[in-house]
C-alpha cells in the first residue's frame, strides 16, 4: 500500500484518532464543505485544522455521516466559528431537534456532545456537489440505523463513516441494545456497498485505504463471527466503548468501575442480553482484557489509558 492515496486537490482528509472521527474538507472555489466534526473535547483542534485547510475560503456547509458523538461533537463549535449550515441524515432529524440523549446514544454510552440545530437533511439517493465532485448519499444502516455514506462514481471514492473500516466496522448498537436488527442491516449494507466500484475508501476512523475488497472480506468475517456468537459481539462493544471513555477521561477509578458498568445502559444491556456476568466479574474481565490489549493499565486505584 502506498503512503498516501491520491485524492483531488479539492479533497483533504484530516486523519484523526478514535475519539474524533476523520474530517473531510471539500473545496469549491472560495467555498467549502466539511464532512464530520470529531468529538466535543477536541473541537478546538478541529476548528484550527479546518481554518488551516480552508486557507481563506468560507466554510459554507457541514454534513454528518451519522449522529454519534465522535462525528457530531464539533458541529456547534464549527458553526460558531465559521457560520456554516449543518446537514444531517434525515433519520436523525427528530433526535437532534429534540436533543434526545437516548436516541443520540449520549446517555446510553455516557458520552458528551454540545447541542446544535440542523439546517437541512439528506437521505439515501440524494445527491450534492462538494469538492468539485458529485456525491450520492447511500443509506448504510447497521452501526447506526440512520447513517449515510457518500459515494462519488467518477473517482470511485466512498466516504464510509463507520459502516466500513479497513478492519471492521462500528459497534452494532441496535443489536447490542436489542432495539433493532443491527446484524441484518449491517449485512445488507455490506452487500450493497460491495456492489459499488470503489478505488478509495475514506473511513470514519483510520487512514484512507484502497484495498476495498479485502476490507469487505474482513468486515463480512467479523459479521459472521458476531452472528455466530452474540457474546463476542457484546464483549467487543463493551471493550470498544470503555476504550472510548478512557481515551476521553484518560483515567477511571477502579472502585467505581463496577457501578459505572452497571449504570451505563450500553454495558448493562450488553451484559444482561449476552453475557450474564455479575458486575464485579464483568469489571475483572474488562480490566484484564484492556491490559492484555495494551489499551490501559492499573496505576494504584485507577485504570489509566496507556
Amino acid at each position: 500500500m502506498s503512503a498516501a492515496l491520491h485524492f483531488p486537490a479539492s479533497l483533504q482528509v484530516f486523519e484523526r484518532g478514535w475519539l474524533s472521527a476523520n474530517n473531510i474538507l471539500l473545496t469549491d472555489g472560495d467555498e467549502a464543505t466539511l464532512i464530520d466534526s470529531g468529538y466535543f473535547s477536541h473541537a478546538g483542534q478541529t476548528v484550527e485544522l479546518v481554518r488551516v485547510g480552508l486557507d481563506g475560503r468560507k466554510l459554507r456547509r457541514l454534513i454528518n455521516t451519522h449522529s454519534h458523538s465522535d462525528h457530531i461533537g464539533g458541529n456547534a463549535a464549527l458553526q460558531r466559528s465559521f457560520g456554516c449550515s449543518i446537514t444531517i441524515p434525515a433519520g436523525m432529524a427528530d433526535a437532534v431537534a429534540n436533543w434526545d440523549e437516548d436516541a443520540l446514544l449520549l446517555r446510553t454510552a455516557a458520552q458528551k456532545c454540545e447541542r446544535f440545530a440542523a439546517t437541512s437533511l439528506l437521505q439515501g439517493g440524494d445527491r450534492f456537489v462538494a469538492g468539485e465532485l458529485e456525491w450520492q448519499a447511500i443509506a448504510v444502516p447497521g452501526h447506526d440505523m440512520d447513517a449515510l455514506a457518500y459515494y462519488n462514481v467518477e473517482r470511485r471514492i466512498l466516504i464510509s463513516g463507520d459502516a466500513l473500516w479497513r478492519d471492521g466496522f462500528g459497534i452494532l448498537f441496535a443489536e447490542v441494545l436489542g432495539s433493532g436488527d443491527g446484524l441484518g442491516e449491517a449485512r445488507r449494507t455490506l452487500e450493497a456497498i460491495g456492489r459499488l466500484a470503489v478505488d478509495a475508501v475514506i473511513p470514519g476512523h483510520g487512514a484512507p485505504f484502497s484495498d476495498f475488497d479485502e476490507a469487505l472480506e474482513r468486515a463480512f468475517a467479523r459479521l459472521r463471527a458476531f452472528e455466530d456468537d452474540g457474546a463476542r459481539m457484546a464483549r467487543n462493544a463493551i471493550r470498544a466503548c470503555v476504550t472510548f471513555a478512557l481515551l476521553d477521561a484518560r483515567r477511571m477509578s477502579l472502585d467505581e468501575l463496577p457501578q459505572y458498568l452497571a449504570e451505563t445502559p450500553l454495558y448493562r444491556e450488553a451484559n444482561a442480553r449476552f453475557l450474564g456476568l455479575g458486575v464485579d466479574a464483568l469489571a475483572d474481565w474488562l480490566i484484564s482484557d484492556l491490559e492484555r490489549a495494551g489499551v490501559a493499565h492499573r496505576e494504584g486505584t485507577e485504570l489509566v489509558a496507556s
Binding site: 500500500m1 475519539l19 473535547s41 487512514a207
Partner: peptide, 13 residues
C-alpha cells in the same frame, strides 16, 4: 503498511 499516525487521542493544541 504506510507510516501510521502518531495520534494518541489527546487532541489539543
Amino acid at each position: 503498511m504506510s507510516v501510521a499516525s502518531p495520534c494518541i487521542n489527546i487532541c489539543h493544541m
